[in-house]
Design a protein around this nucleic acid. Structure first.
Lengths: 188, 188
DNA sequence: GTCTATAGATCGATAGAC
DNA sequence: GTCTATCGATCTATAGAC
């Protein structure tokens, strides 16, 4: 897949892809070495903590990416409605219309649950929290906003499961469309 | 956990629990042996195909259980509304209010995806299909029923992810309550 | 049928040459 | 920094005694 990565940072995308495709246990150092183009020596040079550190680095980068491109936009106070719409668009792109697994969701289901409980919790708590805040700012009551935020993030995670199970990206698209309608983002 | 299982059938529940807890790759024969109380010799006597056959047997049993206790009820033509409500109740019980992972959903996300593509597809297709049919019978148009069925099954899967990620069963309960409302099952 | 012992492969991780 | 060689542990699976 990847030409030889030149450093720790460059290796992260390929690394993330391996964990997404095979899960934590299934991502062997052989697969990781192939995907990154780095030998074991180089991998342990960049990640002295081994596989656990590699997975932690991937989760941290995913977390940072979502913070920057998804959660942050929700914290703009002026146009919450547009920000929420932009969040859904970013999600659609990132998850490849449901074909690409959410690694944090996969870890939440147990693949590496004990090792990353805190990171998994923080990721979803910030996602739901930022969305709920934006929904309050766009006119919803606190309780309704929290319920809508939980429903939205849950629907996205569930749509990924269903899309992959039935091999039909239309499922993810329709789920996002329903969410747009329910969140009051319909074209006006 | 389990007293010594006496045969193939008796071993299945403990076997299922191990796969749910650790995923396919993470479920080692050592863990399986401990959970079932069966030595490796006995395990290979009951499952000559090894771990793959054990997982297949578990998926088949889960599939049969859902067919009997969840999908079948949806095919009763006389009182679709009550049947759908009963389905949600069975789901709440089975998934332990979101604390218990859906093994088929976990496999769909990749843990053993290539090996069980057909079974995973069949399970979710029958679930969505049976629910959509019941919704048509309860007065919805075909397109609306399909959308509602996809939304419902997706919401359940997503609620399991969120419940485990945030360690809060209230999330699963609220998700079911929203579904009851949306499916028109509110107390009359 | 169930056990112990172990084969054979692969795992994550390390060492040392370059 | 990157490679090859290899360690010890663990994995799935099998063999053979009982």
């Amino acid at each position: 897949m990847a030409a030889t990565a030149r450093g720790r940072e460059e290796a992260l995308p390929a690394l993330a892809e391996v964990f997404r495709e095979h899960g934590y246990e299934g991502a062997s150092l052989f697969l990781i070495s192939q995907a990154t183009g780095l030998g074991k020596g180089s991998l342990y040079h960049f990640f002295p903590g081994g596989k656990a550190e590699m997975a932690a680095a991937v989760v941290a980068e995913i977390d940072a990416w979502f913070e920057r491109h998804v959660f942050a936009a929700l914290r703009d106070t002026r146009r919450p409605r547009e920000d929420i719409a932009a969040m859904l668009e970013a999600v659609d792109q990132y998850f490849g219309t449901g074909r690409r697994v959410c690694l944090v969701g996969l870890f939440a289901l147990g693949d590496a649950r004990d090792a990353f409980t805190r990171e998994v919790h923080a990721y979803f708590a910030r996602w739901v929290g930022a969305l709920a805040d934006a929904l309050v700012r766009s006119g919803n009551g606190r309780a309704a906003a929290t319920a809508l935020a939980e429903e939205t993030v849950g629907a996205i995670q569930g749509a990924i499961v269903l899309t992959r199970a039935l091999d039909d990206p239309g499922i993810f698209g329709r789920a996002l469309q329903r969410l747009r309608s329910r969140l009051g983002l319909e074209r006006r």
